[in-house]
Design a binder for these strands. Structure first.
Length: 328
DNA sequence: ATAAAGGTTCATCGTGG
DNA sequence: CCACGTGGAACCTTTAT
């Protein structure tokens, strides 16, 4: 651990002590109902726990005046800590050791001390790089968390994503690539592996990196880590599309059946699974006499109407085929 | 690294219900 | 307004150079 971290920890403790002292100094009886008073130091209020009467307001609010939505934001907005600069990778918080073997007065150091300084430099460098990596990791994990919530992905996917990210980090895949890009790729891969895929477009929309970079990085990460990511199963998109389109359960069920039939007939090889899923949630409601347009489906699935039409034809063929086989 | 080949997706259009 | 087919550009993946 570096000085930086120790120092932050001390500061936190000081604040805690302040809070507990303010609390213990308060009067404890409510003038209104005689109930006990509770001080909320964070918001500068003293209120009665029984009747809710606010006895004192406008005390010093020790809470932050900003809101943080994830841990990386909390880091960047918090004012606890030494003044920082953006100019250095560590924002100037670390110890630096001069390369010259002079003391603060410019006198040469003894050989004994020179050796000592050399050792210190070595260790300092090690701490700095470790710090650097930790910072990367924290930022990446914060980013993964942010995107995952935006996409409504469950906890286990975030965990898988961070595991993938850590592996990428360990295998030195980061140099030359952005943290954001690798984080985005990890999340995308994790979602697919967990069977709750999101489309490339959906992921790219909540990511801070361009779609092109995202895709390039994703291919790279998958190849280098030998990740086994099977092509997404069209069925896994059906639930989401179906609920966004408000189609009946019956139609949703039919959509799944159609996709199963198509899968058995090997219609999907080489095609975008999303297109097939889109076609199924378009075709099924038609067969159950529900109102639906290609344009609606096109919007929620992010697939062109042309593609829906093409897949739709193949899907019907496969489905009828299956029907015939069943009848025979 | 680059190119060629073979495939898919897409924005547009006209036709027709 | 919606569905459908179309053909050529853009793009992706694979394979060979």
């Amino acid at each position: 651990m570096t000085e930086t971290h120790t120092w932050t920890a001390n500061e936190t403790r000081t604040i805690d002590e302040q809070q507990s002292t303010t609390e213990s100094e308060q009067e404890h009886v409510c003038p209104e109902c005689g109930g006990s008073l509770v001080t909320d130091a964070e918001h500068g209020e003293t209120a009665c726990s029984e009747c809710g009467l606010v006895v004192e307001e406008d005390e010093i609010d020790h809470g932050p005046e900003w809101r943080a939505f994830d841990s990386s934001e909390r880091d960047s907005k918090s004012r606890v800590g030494a003044p920082t600069t953006q100019m250095m990778h560590d924002k100037g918080l670390s110890t630096t050791i001069d390369w010259q073997n002079k003391d603060a007065y410019g006198n040469a150091l003894s050989s004994n001390q020179r050796e000592k300084m050399q050792r210190l430099r070595t260790w300092n460098r090690r701490f700095q790089t470790r710090d650097h990596q930790e910072r990367n990791l924290r930022q990446a994990l914060g980013e993964i968390d942010r995107m995952a919530s935006a996409l409504g992905l469950p906890e286990n996917v975030r965990e898988t994503a961070s595991v993938i990210y850590r592996r990428a980090l360990e295998d030195d895949l980061l140099p030359g690539r952005s943290i954001e890009g690798v984080a985005t790729s990890s999340l995308y891969a994790a979602a697919r592996q967990a069977g709750v895929p999101r489309t490339i477009d959906e992921v790219a929309r909540v990511s801070r990196v361009e779609e092109e970079e995202f895709k390039r990085t994703y291919r790279y990460v998958v190849r280098e880590l030998n990740l086994e990511v099977a092509p997404a199963d069209p069925v896994s998109y059906v639930t989401r599309f179906a609920s966004e389109l408000d189609i009946s359960d019956e139609a949703e069920h039919l959509a799944r059946e159609m996709l199963e039939a198509a899968k058995e007939r090997g219609v999907h090889s080489g095609k975008n699974p999303v297109g097939l899923a889109a076609a199924s949630v378009y075709a099924a409601p038609l067969l159950t006499n529900e109102q639906i347009t290609q344009q609606e489906v096109s919007e929620v699935a992010d697939i062109s109407e042309v593609t829906i039409r093409n897949r739709y034809r193949e899907l019907l063929e496969a489905y009828e085929d299956a029907d015939r086989a069943l009848a025979a």
